[in-house]
Amino acid sequence: MLRVEAINSGYGNAQVLRDVSLDVAAGEILCLMGRNGAGKTTAMKTIMGLLPLMSGRITLDGQDVGRLPAHEVARAGIGYIPQGRRLFTELTVAQNLEIGLMTRKSGPHVRTRVLELFPRLSERLNQRAETLSGGEQQMLATARALCIEPKVLILDEPTEGLQPSMIEAIRDVVVRLRNEGVAILLVEQRVDAVLALADRVAFLENGILAETVTPERMRTDAALLKRYLGV
């Protein structure tokens, strides 16, 4: 579904990613792991069109999205849940969702469905996003991305700093989406979460995609984690 071919990108003249290729199929969870500064977030931002592509191709169902202006990438059907949530803090929960709904002109049934997934948000619709708890903010960030009915969902460390019950709630939604056929690209640091969720695991090292393995391989081969994560 989402196919990234030999992309090079970075910030200004500082190149971060070198010939990174990966692909995620519908109904699959691909976890991206690597040390801090390995280029995980850079890869996400490049896919979203927020960083310029120096070379390479990014396609979604065969459609070239790598050369689209940033605001059209989301319209093609990629939902993005960035690191640190990045909500529109001064807007209310309802307004944050509305921005999501406007992206692809989703109908009211999408909103109803998203609120069914996160019932706690429907109690807080008129509250400003910045007044929500950390877990609720993460729910809102996820809900906002789901409002565009994504074919591909990109999550950048969604469970960072959350309490276990919230991690559980987010995970349930991710699994549910996978079962509905959404392609999921997940950046995650916690090994146990990756082992429980991932269909495949890709390791980034210094901007280069070093290896893609199955979770079984990761479970048995301790040297992998030592090499790419330092644990």
Partner: peptide, 24 residues
Amino acid sequence: TKIGLIMRATQLDRDMAQAFGIPV
């Protein structure tokens, strides 16, 4: 209005506005 909402979203977080289809 909708255009006001779009302007405020752009003001609050330009990158995220783009990531949600707003032609900044």
